[in-house]
Design a binder for these strands. Structure first.
Lengths: 316, 316
DNA sequence: TTGTAGGCGTTATCAA
DNA sequence: TTGATAACGCCTACAA
């Protein structure tokens, strides 16, 4: 294993000079800096992150905390996780996965990414002793990255209108969480802009609940209706029941989902959906968290990522 | 932060005695051991794994390597990953996620878990410089954990027969990999035991390919047939086309999947399937890998986990 | 059986 | 601007 000392010898300088070239290059004269960099290259030197961690009193580990049940959770988090992991690896960080909140304080970690937080969780956030960032919009001042939910449903609704569906119904998720409010707001604002009256249903985020909703209300539905759904799961349920009722998709009924992870591709017909850039958000979250750690916990703000509409077979 | 020294002072012994109580307790007299353990408790001491890693020339990090494309991959790996992570955390290990084989040698890691390996991958395994274990059966002597694929399809086939389906057709995955051979063998052996003639189709592991298969062959299908499918994806495709053809499930046609992750639950009707204990296998893989690391790479053998049949709505 | 000295690879501090 | 020294927390080797 090549160490600082090896590089120092090779370049005929002290270990400290090498260390400075790595951490504070501006403190070293250009000449020596060149020599050292040359030496690092020829020896193929890479700093030992464990030793760095020790002196800096770090662990080079962060925790990825999932407060939602992963069994019922979509492949969603898989993408987030891989994006997050990519962001961490750039900085030689590794991660631990946590599903049990009790485990958060155990072991060593420099910070946390918290996902799937609900209103009731926020209470204990302030007791956390390490920096953390959230995946999911909130309005309590915690740093976060999320999709621009409002914009996403605005785009979906505008698209439905542009395809000349006469009625636009929103099928939301039955939770009182910021992301849901934002999605509904995107829908409502767009309809109002077009002087139309919003019509909103809400169900639990399961395909069979959405399916039941359609079943119970199918008689009252008219042709030329498009359903804006707050998740692909819901959209899949809507589609399934529409098909059972013999309705024609996309000619008489349109369906637009939200998420664009996995489910949208296995559904049949393939789902038009608002696709979140989940992998990218994971990467951004890693950057945000590592930066926050480096800045000993200073606020990082909020990042909202624009989703994209993917047009497939459930809209005409 | 409580360190070895703090404990040593508290117990009125040297640091080394404390260290020994942790790593080689048998070398310490019972009396001192008691004192030290007492001191560790009252101070709530936990060894600093970073310092341990430094002296042992370890990183306390392992890599989770996914050779399959995660976009097309099922939630499958999510469960494996969480099980694996749980096993690691017990030993204060963290993980890095790797999808690009080129990244394997980069950075620091003590070992690898390799998943999704295909025949063509085995070439470069021997060049790996760190211990590794595989998820997925192989017959080249590499340590692995996997479901007992043969047993799984044996159970599925026996069950189909017990439900009095007269014809049992196997729809496999069109790859020449050990897991597929094992699944087919489970089916073939069971049929032969009952003096029946195997009938095997193979398609790519996508629902629409399975769907097409049924579409192309539906005319020749007779009632009282059960499909043993090598994956839930395939099963979902089979079901979809059977429904389109107006066939009655499960009365005239039975369908049994394989995997039992996510897809089986969102399908409609709910899928009878051979469920793998993926989370558990992840945990076992972590133990196996950490043990292998601790034993500087010595062979760990093979572990096959028995899957369980989950009876739901696609068999009568 | 227990303790002392030294070192793992890096960085902060202070002196030159 | 550069270098010597000590320290981070732990463990191996050796001595007592």
């Amino acid at each position: 294993m090549v160490t600082l000392s090896d590089v120092a010898k090779e370049a005929n300088v002290s270990k400290m000079t090498v260390s400075r070239v790595i951490n504070h290059p501006e403190q070293v004269t250009e000449e020596l800096r060149g020599l050292v960099q040359q030496a690092m290259e020829t020896l193929d030197y890479h700093p030992n992150s464990v030793a760095q961690a020790l002196v800096n009193n770090r662990s080079n580990v962060v925790k990825f905390i999932t407060l939602e049940d992963i069994d019922t959770t979509e492949p969603y988090y898989m993408n987030l996780l891989f994006g997050f992991a990519q962001g961490l690896t750039k900085k030689q960080y590794a991660l631990q996965l946590v599903t049990d909140p009790k485990q958060i304080g155990q072991g060593r970690a420099d910070g946390y990414l918290i996902t799937g937080a609900r209103n009731e969780d926020y209470e204990w956030f302030d007791k956390l002793k390490k920096p953390f960032v959230l995946f999911g919009e909130n309005h309590r001042g915690y740093d976060f990255v999320d999709t621009d939910n409002q914009s996403g449903e605005r785009i979906a609704t505008e698209y439905a209108l542009s395809r000349l569906y006469k009625r636009i119904i929103f099928v939301g998720i039955d939770v009182k969480e910021p992301f849901e409010y934002s999605r509904e707001a995107g829908y409502i604002n767009t309809l109002q802009k077009h002087q139309m009256i919003p019509q909103i249903y809400r169900v639990g985020n399961h395909s069979h609940e959405a399916q039941k909703l359609i079943k119970d209300n199918f008689k009252e539905l008219k042709k030329d209706t498009c359903f804006i759904c707050a998740s692909d799961r819901i959209a899949v349920g809507v589609i399934r029941q529409l098909q059972k009722e013999g309705a024609r998709i996309p000619d008489d009924f349109g369906v637009i989902g939200f998420d664009g992870v996995f489910l949208d591709q296995v559904s049949n017909p393939k789902l038009t959906t608002v696709k979140q850039s989940i992998f990218k958000m994971g990467d951004l979250l890693a950057n945000m968290l590592l930066q926050k750690i480096a800045q000993s916990g200073s606020p990082q703000g909020e990042i909202m990522i624009e989703p994209t509409l993917v047009r497939r077979e459930t809209t005409r």
